[in-house]
Nucleic acid binder design. Structure first.
Lengths: 170, 170
DNA sequence: CTGTACTTTCAATTATTTGTGAAAGTTATT
DNA sequence: AATAACTTTCACAAATAATTGAAAGTACAG
């Protein structure tokens, strides 16, 4: 396989992985491009490499910065901004976990706690009790996942690696 | 809050959680409905409760069965099929993990192994080496995640619970 | 202050994903 | 073998999400 072909295929695979996990394809492709690029590149370079518009490149880069997956590098004496990706996948995974916890776990947890406050007059007693029970189970589960993600988000790299090692050896 | 309102809100929250994780909103809503329903219900009941079409109800139910999240219950002497959800969230999480491993991790792993086979004539030696190195890192990471998910998928319920307990106490 | 070299925004467009519902398929019953 | 009761399929419609590109904004250099 040619080198360029290989790069392109990686970018596409990473892109479709992204879209099946609720991240826009382009954002994942930009991330892939930066993962395989060792020197910082500009928005212009990204536009060119992926054939995307200026606006799209800008939005994707900014979103990646928000997620903590890439950073801006300013070259002295140059207006242009350059971008560089975090290459360590453990760190990448932790940042994604942290971000998704904030965006998706928090809302569902708050919804769950609201939803348990039911006027007992408005339904069958037993059914309400069952429903509340189910909600509590979900809350409990979400709470544990939340705890785990929090732990991951603040843990140092080796902690997670060694945890995984432990889990997998057993 | 009224009981019906509470149910509706839970269904909606679960639905939007689904859509940010790459599961169609309706499929997640059907799942939510079945999670809070203790007796098996028919496709017709689902259509009515969620105001969705026959085709959509059927597809969502079938997908949930494929994922192992719900099962068909046949009532003796009745043509109609009834559906019942797995209520234990640990099991639910494991089945989702297993399914996504199969659908998303396997493709990326196979792509990664292909992509390392590069004709050395077609690019800068050092760049190719860097690229291969990065691919190997991703493969290694994916392999570990795969191992973990496999372990989860086959583990008994308590194994995961106690693992989490261990992790969180430490 | 003005021109230049960039970055950011956002309304309009385009692409993708979901959902619909009528028609076809299936299976049990008479 | 005809009917009835239900399930599945699929071409099209609707809804949603992503992308564009031109215009506006910013900051620096001279």
């Amino acid at each position: 396989m040619e080198f360029n072909e290989a790069k392109e295929q990686f970018i596409n695979s990473w892109g479709s992985l992204g879209s099946s996990w609720g991240v826009s394809r382009t954002m994942a492709q930009v991330h892939a491009l930066l993962l395989i690029t060792h020197d910082p590149i500009s928005a212009e370079d990204v536009m060119e490499a992926l054939n995307i518009s200026r606006g799209n490149a800008n939005m994707s880069l900014r979103a990646l910065i928000d997620w903590g997956l890439i950073e801006k590098k300013v070259k002295l004496g140059e207006r242009r901004e350059y971008f560089l990706a975090e290459k360590d996948l453990w760190k990448v995974a932790m940042r994604i976990a942290k971000e998704r916890r904030k965006r998706e776990l928090e809302p569902i947890m708050s919804a769950l706690s609201q939803v348990k406050d039911i006027d007992p007059e408005t339904g069958d007693k037993k059914e309400i009790a069952q429903f509340k029970g189910q909600m509590e189970e979900i809350e409990d589960f979400a709470g544990r996942v939340d705890g785990l993600l929090n732990k991951l988000a603040t843990a140092d790299e080796n902690w997670f690696t060694s945890l995984l090692a432990r889990v997998l050896i057993k």
